[in-house]
Design a protein around this nucleic acid. Structure first.
Lengths: 255, 255
DNA sequence: CCGTAAGGGTTACACCGTAAGTCACATGCG
DNA sequence: CGCATGTGACTTACGGTGTAACCCTTACGG
């Protein structure tokens, strides 16, 4: 019994409702254009890139896809799983972008350089999404269900093993490399407006803009503020990466 | 038209309704024990430490404090502000724990060691909360409203300035130090059961535990899994920190 | 004794994730 | 051809969330 609610629904109803009983007979065979998991995940990534993670809801994502929220549940088991898939998708983007994950060919140093820059490029391409990636790392796959973005981990470990790293050196290098990327890119990305705050997207515009010289009890901070805000992090990334590679070289030698 | 919904509200109504008018006359002066912002924030920190960030809701937090959710809004302007306050509180805990933030006395190297270990101790003390801290760094205080955990930043910058670092070296050191801590501690903490990021799942216990030898298409990962899961990260922290200090020494010299 | 304001409770609303049921159509089989 | 079956999307419904707006009780200063 349809109960005819006061129908305040003002969203655009796509199609196929009011006249379902009429002849219609107009649709070519597959008018349904079934959505698939990839379309959903891609839409989610796009939404996060544009509006940020907090605004992403199942209903809203459904709206983007011209579909009711519940339809998504046929392809993703829930919001959490969707976010996992988003993380995976972003990480696998490296694989598509170019051969970042290919076995080392010019020695492990260049290999790690490629890897690092690949990840950095991905992070900067999705500043709003990267904190999400960072906050759910490969999910300790060696315990529990597994399945996060293991292709990356596998490529790293395998690549180093094939370059003369023994097991312990490989593991140490993995940890050093990972934490380096995590720290650097998180910092870089949040400086670039990658926020995690829930729904401030709309506008926070000007309030209390008369902070001309409001009392800041932190003199050094306020003096160095401009310098801190500046963005030569690309250079710093390069330098830190070089140091990291030196350290990894020591690990390899010590093995 | 209000339509008089079927009013099925069956929640337990607590107290203080039927007999409010009676004499009572028993309460000593301040029976209300007014809650204040600190009590709220502390309760929030405690809740996150115990149950994780995702489960924290205003109503639940109110319940912990024996208060209705809406009463919290008199002290914190909303959930987001509350989380900001939690981050601040955790960061300021360093200040209380001991004199981590005191000006350098044994040279800047020992100062930075103290700082690093102070932060690490805080991170390990609140593994469930640290990802939250990491995901909202000092909020680029030099732009916009400011006010995150600037005491820490100020201490760092001031400490280094007083130890012969010029401005650019100080800023570079700050960035290197911060990203180092971010990366290392995030990794360490999430390995220790730190919860996932911003606003996520409540609880998903064991499902599909029969992963006896499910097909893992990642041979190296599964072989090195045990080693990756092991936890000698304290040692690694120490070693990486030492290398970092060397790098910072170079920055100081180059200035 | 009466403002008056603060501390807290109560109601209401829009939105969220999602379990469960339904309906339209495509495709198989007899 | 008719009918069973399955699939993909829509609909309804429920409990939970953050929070705006209002109400009530108490404390206290005049």
């Amino acid at each position: 019994m349809p109960t005819e609610r006061d129908d305040a629904v003002d969203v655009a109803r796509p199609v196929a409702d009011a006249d379902a009983t009429v002849v219609d007979g107009r649709q070519p065979p597959s008018a349904r254009v079934p959505l698939d998991r990839n379309r959903i995940v891609d839409a989610a990534v796009g939404y996060i890139d544009e509006f940020g993670l907090p605004g992403l809801s199942m209903r809203r994502l459904g709206g983007v896809l011209g579909v009711e929220a519940m339809s998504l549940y046929r392809y993703v088991s829930g919001r959490e799983a969707l976010l996992d898939a988003v993380v995976d998708s972003i990480m696998d983007q490296m694989h598509r972008d170019e051969d970042v994950l290919a076995r080392p060919q010019d020695g492990w140093q260049d290999y790690l350089q490629r890897l690092a820059h690949g990840v950095r490029r991905v992070a900067l391409a999705h500043p709003k999404a990267f904190p999400l990636v960072a906050s759910r790392p490969p999910e300790a796959p060696w315990l529990r269900p597994p399945l996060r973005s293991l292709a990356w981990v596998e490529a790293f470990l395998d690549g180093l093993r094939s370059e003369g790293f023994n097991d312990t050196a490989t593991v140490s290098a993995y940890r050093a490399f990972t934490s380096f990327l995590l720290g650097h890119l998180l910092l870089e990305v949040t400086a670039h407006g990658g926020d995690v705050g829930p729904l401030d997207v709309l506008e926070d515009s000007q309030n209390s803009q008369d902070l001309g010289k409001t009392l800041t009890p932190y003199p050094v901070v306020s003096r160095l503020g401009k310098a801190l805000a500046e963005d030569h992090s690309a250079v710093e990334f390069e330098e830190s990466l070089e140091d990291l590679l030196n350290r990894i070289a020591l690990m390899r030698a010590e093995s």
